[in-house]
Amino acid sequence: MSLRFEIQDLFSEASRRNASDIHISVNVPPIFRVDEQLRRIDHPPLSVEDVKMILSRLISDLQFKRFYSEKELDFSFNFPLGNGETIRFRGNCFFERGNIAIVLRLIPQEIRLIKNLLLPSQIQEVAKKRRGLFLVTGPSGHGKSTSLAAIIQEINLTRNCHIVTIEDPIEYMFTSVKSLIHQREIEVDAASFAEALKRTLRQDPDVIMIGEMRDLDTTRAAITAAETGHLVLSTLHTPDSSQSIDRILDIFPAYQQDQVKLQLANILIGVCSQQLIPLLEGGRIVATELMWAVPAVCNCIRERKIHGIKNIIQTGLDQGMHTMDQDLIRLVKEGKLPKDLAASYALERKEFNRMLYL
């Protein structure tokens, strides 16, 4: 059996098992991540040449040269399975102990809507906004890109907008419906996030989606874009709203933070922090914290009293807000999560246990 067909079989099996990731390493068989658990498949251990050959089938010669030069590479690709189905992947390859290793994230072809993801229905209001900054935050692998894609698709189906996405690499592939969508990939279509953002402001955008606000230049450009009348959507690897705001402010030099907190208070729409929790019967369910930039929150940002935001969220149910622990309690009371499992994902376990019995 040729390696090409082994790859095809491997990807087909990953899709069949609803794996979220595939790990390909030397001296071990391929490993799938299914519902947060790593599971080895019945396959012989891969040799150095096997892994090198697999990677050569997934990336271009130019990417291969860059990988050997920089020792790391992010990439994405579509792979046809031969039955009319195509799977899309986001990949990363790296060296460990001198050997190549590859991690592939499966990207669903279908872009699910906000209601299908069981996200808070209030998030649909974001798709109606004309300007401002909305963030989706949480750990890696917990659906941030999927939630952003759902908001973009909501806009695509309901508004006549020009949407520009800036990603590294491109994950979900959009088809323009009511909106016109242009997707730009770093190092393929643009040199950097910051440079792409600067140029995007000259491309008549209405909505700008930034894959991640990962550095000072990108964050500064995102704030500028939101200030100049655009809807900006992005992600951060932060567990809750308060830490998301602190992360943005702290990325700036100390002498600029007073100005930035005023800008952020003026442009912020809200923050949705999320976790995907594996269910005992299989599959995962989303738990969220949702914060809106109501006047009290904006005052906390202006005065750099970020610690006060949690209390505002906790008491803001009538304004469509809730903390992560409040949402976990909701899932327990609705019978969707067992108490012990929900408690293990609580941000403040003692507080979770106290609120559970109120």
Rank of each mutant, 00 (worst) to 15 (best):
E6Q: 11
I7R: 14
D9E: 13
A19E: 02
V28G: 01
V34C: 02
E36T: 15
Q37A: 10
I41M: 08
M53L: 10
M53D: 04
L55Y: 11
S56V: 03
S69F: 00
E70K: 10
E70S: 12
K71E: 08
L81I: 06
G91R: 03
A101H: 09
R105G: 14
R105W: 08
E110R: 14
K115S: 10
L118A: 07
S121N: 15
A127G: 15
G132W: 00
S140N: 11
G141I: 06
I152F: 08
I155M: 03
H162Q: 09
T165G: 09
T165I: 14
T175V: 11
A191E: 07
S192G: 06
F193Y: 12
L197T: 03
R199H: 13
D204G: 07
R220Q: 14
A222P: 07
A226F: 03
V232Q: 07
T235M: 01
H237G: 05
Q243M: 12
Q243G: 05
F252G: 10
F252A: 05
Q256C: 15
G270H: 07
V271D: 03
P278L: 01
L290T: 06
L290E: 00
P295V: 03
C298A: 13
I306T: 06
I306A: 00
G308Q: 12
K310W: 12
D318F: 08
K333A: 04
L337E: 01
K339R: 13
D340S: 09
